[in-house]
Design a protein around this nucleic acid. Structure first.
Length: 583
RNA sequence: GCCGAGAUAGCUCAACUGGUAGAGCACUCGCCUUGUAAGCGAAAGGUUGUGGGUUCAAGUCCCAUUCUCGGCUCCA
C-alpha cells in the first residue's frame, strides 16, 4: 500500500458506503470493509440480496452523506465498552473480531449514526470523499472460510481524481478486449463445448499449430538442459495413488476411479508417481544422478465448477512436468538451473511483470509438514540462496509450503492484472519416502532428493496467458498463420501459389486468400485474424516476382524481392524475435 | 461447492406490462476481376440451454436442472 493518503480515502469511502447501506437496509450487519488495489469493499449480512439497481440507490445515499460533511470521530475504549456497544447494535461479526483484540488497542470510528470497529486512520469528514463508483456485488465467506456464512460484498472503485478513475475503467475495457476467452474463439484457437464438458478444451487447428510450436520448443529446451523424455499412461491402478498418498490427501481433486476387471483404475491427477516408478525400475548409483525425467503429461483434476476459468483453470491439462532426482549436494545447482530456465522462458516470451514467491514451512507447526528438519533447512536455504544470489525480488510465505516440501512459484500478470501461476519448483520429501527410493552411494544406500518442476505450468494456461499478453498478435515464430497472401485478381493465382510453395519450403506458414473479393475486405479479414504479415500480389508484383508487404500498423513495403521477404521472415521466426525484422 | 447475475440463428443483439420470434454480420448461391480495414442482390438459417408446471395462450410467469459470467474458496 504505497499511497497511504489514497488508501485512507478508500477506507473512509467503505465506511460511508456501509453507513448508506445501514440507512437503506436497517438491520444489515457489518463484516469487514478494507481498502484494496483499485478501491474498497465492504461485506454485509443482509437478508435481502442486493441488486445492481441497489448500487445506484446506495451511491445516491452516499452522495447525500458526503454533502453533509459528517466528521469521522475516533474513540478509544475498553474491550468491555466496545463489546457492550456492538452487542447493543447487534453487530455479531464485529463482536467476533473484538475477541481477537487486546484491551487498550480498541478504537471505534463513528460517522453520524454509523459506528465501526476500526484501526483508522480516516479523512476528517465525509465531504473529503469523491471520485468513487460502486462496481460489483459478489458473495464472500465470512473470514474467507467456506464453512462460515456467506456475506454480500459490494466492491467500489476509488481514485485520486476523475482522470485516474476514467483511465482505470478504460484500461479494464481494453483488457476485456484481449481476454483469451473472447480472443481464443475469435481467432479460432480453441473452444469449450457443453457436450464435451466444462473445463475441457477443444484445440482448433490454429491453436494446435501454436501448441505444437510451444511443445517442440520446450522439449528441445529440456533436452539441451539434460532432461530425459519419458511418457506415462493417462490411467493407472488406483493402488499407485494409494502408495503416493494422493488417494488420501488429494482425493477431493481426483475424478472418481473406474472399475476394470474387479480392480480400480484412476485417471491421473499427477505425473509424479509414474516418474517415480521409472526411477525405481532400476538400481541407481550416485554416478547416475541427477536424473531428470520430463514429460508433457496430461492430467485430469476435478476442479470445483465455480473455479473454472477459460484456459487458465480447467479440468484436463498438460503440464510440462519434470522430476529431478539428485543427491543433497546437487540440490542447489539443480534449483538454480530450474530458476534460470524459468527466467529464460520469461525473456523469450517478453514477460516483464512477474512475481516470485517462496513458500516455506511454518516452524510453529511442524506437524503440518513431513520430512526431516535438516532436509527442509537445506531445501529452503537452497531456494533462498538461488533467489538472493540472483538479486531476484521475492516474497516469502511462511507456512504456505506444501506438506511435502518448500517451493518457489513464479506468477505472471494477465491483461487485467490478475496473477497466474506458471512456473513452480517444489521439493518433495514425501514420495521418495513412500516409494522407498534409493541410490547407491560410496558409503551405502541413500534416499535421493526429489524436485518437481514445471516451467509453463500447463500448456493450456500458458496459451491463455500469452493470448492475453500479446493480445492475439503473436510473434512470428508462434503465429499459426505467419503470412496471408492476397491476390488482386484471378490472374495472380499462379504466382500466389508459387509464393506460398516457396514459403512453405522455407519452413514458413503462409495462407492463401485467392477469393475474387475486394482487396480492402481481404486486408480487413487478415488484420482481424492478427496475421503478422499481409502479402499483397497484384499484376505488378506477379510481373516483377516481388511482394508488397503490409505490416500490422498499416505501413506498406512496396515491391520487395520475394527471396528477401522469405529470408527476413525466416530469420525473424528462427530467432524467435519479439519484433518485426521486415519494417 | 457457495452467493449473485445470465443463457434467443454460427457471432453480436432486439422482441413494452404473457398475444404470429426479428435485424446486422458470417455461411450458401448469383453478379462484380477488384490496389490497402466491410461491393451488390437473393435464399437459407430457431423445439428461445434442457425437463416439468401455470395459462385459452409462455422467449416472457413458477419449479428443477445444465452451462456461462462476476466474486468467495481452492489451485498448474
Amino acid at each position: 500500500m504505497e499511497n497511504t493518503e489514497l488508501q485512507t480515502k478508500r477506507h473512509s469511502c467503505a465506511h460511508i458506503m456501509a453507513a448508506a447501506v445501514q440507512q437503506l437496509f436497517p438491520g444489515t450487519k457489518l463484516g469487514i470493509g478494507p481498502a484494496v488495489d483499485n478501491g474498497f469493499y465492504y461485506d454485509f449480512d443482509c437478508p435481502r440480496a442486493f441488486t445492481p439497481e441497489d448500487l445506484k440507490t446506495i451511491e445516491t445515499k452516499m452522495k447525500e452523506l458526503i454533502k453533509a460533511r459528517i466528521p469521522f470521530e475516533c474513540k478509544q475504549m475498553s474491550k468491555a465498552e466496545a463489546k457492550a456497544l456492538f452487542e447493543k447494535r447487534g453487530e455479531t461479526y464485529k463482536l467476533e473480531l473484538l475477541e481477537d483484540l487486546n484491551d487498550g488497542e480498541i478504537t471505534i470510528y463513528t460517522t453520524g449514526d454509523f459506528v465501526d470497529l476500526c484501526r483508522g486512520p480516516h479523512v476528517e469528514h465525509t465531504g473529503k470523499i469523491n471520485n468513487f463508483k460502486l462496481s460489483a456485488i459478489a458473495g464472500a465467506y465470512w473470514r474467507g472460510d467456506e464453512k462460515r456464512p456467506m456475506l454480500q460484498r459490494i466492491y467500489g472503485l476509488s481514485f485520486n481524481d476523475k482522470d485516474e478513475l476514467n483511465a482505470y475503467v478504460k484500461q479494464q475495457e481494453e483488457a476485456a478486449k484481449r481476454d483469451h476467452r473472447k480472443l481464443g474463439p475469435e481467432l479460432d484457437l480453441f473452444s469449450i463445448n457443453d457436450n464435451v464438458g466444462p473445463g475441457l478444451i477443444l484445440t482448433h487447428p490454429k491453436g494446435g499449430m501454436l501448441r505444437k510450436v510451444l511443445e517442440d520448443w520446450i522439449k528441445n529446451e529440456n533436452i539441451q538442459r539434460g532432461y530425459d523424455m519419458v511418457y506415462s499412461p493417462h490411467i493407472a491402478r488406483l493402488h499407485l495413488f494409494e502408495i503416493s498418498g494422493h488417494a488420501g490427501f488429494y482425493s477431493e481433486s481426483m475424478f472418481h476411479p473406474m472399475e476394470v476387471d474387479g480392480d480400480k483404475y484412476q485417471i491421473k491427477p499427477m505425473n509424479c508417481p509414474f516418474h517415480v516408478e521409472i526411477y525405481k525400475s532400476g538400481l541407481r548409483s550416485y554416478r547416475d544422478l541427477p536424473l531428470r525425467y520430463s514429460e508433457l503429461g496430461t492430467v485430469y483434476r476435478y476442479e470445483r465448477s465455480g473455479a473454472l476459468h477459460g484456459l487458465l483453470r480447467v479440468r484436463g491439462f498438460t503440464q510440462d512436468d519434470a522430476h529431478i532426482f539428485c543427491t543433497p549436494e546437487q540440490v542447489e545447482d539443480e534449483v538454480k538451473q530450474c530458476f534460470d530456465f524459468a527466467m529464460h522462458i520469461f525473456k523469450t516470451f517478453g514477460f516483464e511483470k512477474y512475481a516470485v514467491e517462496l513458500s516455506t514451512r511454518d516452524p510453529q507447526h511442524p506437524e503440518h509438514f513431513t520430512g526431516k528438519v535438516e532436509d527442509w533447512d537445506r531445501a529452503e536455504n537452497a531456494l533462498r540462496h538461488v533467489l538472493d544470489s540472483n538479486n531476484i525480488p521475492y516474497t516469502t510465505h511462511a507456512g504456505e509450503a506444501a506438506f511435502y516440501g518448500p517451493k518457489i512459484d513464479i506468477k505472471v500478470m494477465d491483461a487485467i492484472g490478475r496473477l497466474w501461476q506458471l512456473s513452480t519448483i517444489q521439493f518433495d520429501f514425501n514420495l521418495p519416502e513412500r516409494f522407498d527410493l534409493e541410490y547407491v552411494a560410496p558409503e551405502g544406500r541413500k534416499r535421493p532428493i526429489m524436485v518437481h518442476r514445471a516451467m509453463f505450468g500447463s500448456i493450456e494456461r500458458f496459451l491463455g496467458v500469452i493470448i492475453e499478453h500479446y493480445a492475439g498478435w503473436f510473434p512470428l515464430w508462434l503465429a499459426p498463420v505467419q503470412a496471408k497472401i492476397l491476390t488482386l485478381t484471378d490472374d495472380q493465382i499462379p504466382y500466389a501459389k508459387e509464393v506460398a510453395a516457396q514459403m512453405r519450403a522455407a519452413g514458413l506458414r503462409p495462407q492463401l486468400d485467392i477469393r475474387p473479393e475486394k482487396l480492402g475486405l481481404k486486408i480487413r479479414e487478415a488484420h482481424m485474424q492478427r496475421v503478422p504479415y499481409t502479402l499483397v500480389i497484384g499484376a505488378k508484383e506477379a510481373q516483377d516476382k516481388t511482394i508488397t508487404v503490409r505490416l500490422r500498423d498499416g505501413k506498406n513495403l512496396n515491391g520487395l524481392p520475394l527471396a528477401d521477404v522469405i529470408a527476413k521472415m525466416k530469420e525473424e521466426a528462427e530467432s524467435r524475435s519479439l519484433s518485426n525484422l521486415l519494417k
